[in-house]
Simulated scan of single mutants.
Amino acid sequence: MKVQLLVSKWCPTCPQAERIWTEAAQKLPMDLQILDVAERDGREVVSRLRIKTVPAVVVDGTLKAVGVQPLGDVLKLLGA
C-alpha cells in the first residue's frame, strides 16, 4: 500500500499529522511518503488530484482524507 501525506512548511497542523502517520507506518505495512506541496513531487500530486488543503492523505493514488485524523481513525482508514 502506498500512502502519500501531503504537507506544507506553513501548515500548523501538518507536524501532528506527520507524527500520527509515522506511528501508523510502524504498526502497518505501507510505503509512507511525506511530500511537501512546495516541492515538485508534492505539486504533481496536488495538481493531479486537485487538492486544495493540507494535510491531505492519498492512498494508492486516491485522495482519502484531509486534515488530521486520530491514530485510531488512521488505522481504520487503512483497514486495520
Rank of each mutant, 00 (worst) to 15 (best):
G79Q: 00
E23M: 01
D73R: 05
V58E: 01
C11L: 00
Q4E: 13
Q33V: 09
V68A: 12
V54A: 02
W21Q: 05
R40H: 15
V59N: 06
L5T: 01
E39L: 13
K9D: 06
P70Q: 09
V74N: 10
V74P: 06
A65V: 10
D36P: 10
V46H: 05
L35D: 02
I34N: 02
P15I: 00
G42N: 03
A38C: 07
I20W: 05
E18P: 03
D60P: 05
A56E: 12
R19V: 02
I51L: 06
S8G: 15
R50W: 14
P29M: 07
Q16V: 04
Q69Y: 14
A17H: 04
C11V: 04
K64H: 11
G61Q: 00
T53D: 08
W10M: 06
K52T: 14
V66F: 09
G67L: 09
W21D: 06
L63W: 04
V58G: 04
T22S: 12
V37G: 08
W21F: 11
R48F: 14
P29F: 07
V58N: 01
L75H: 10
V74Q: 06
A56H: 12
V45H: 11
G61M: 03
T62V: 12
A25M: 08
P12W: 08
K52V: 15
G61D: 00
P12R: 00
E44N: 12
T13M: 07
M30K: 00
Q26I: 04
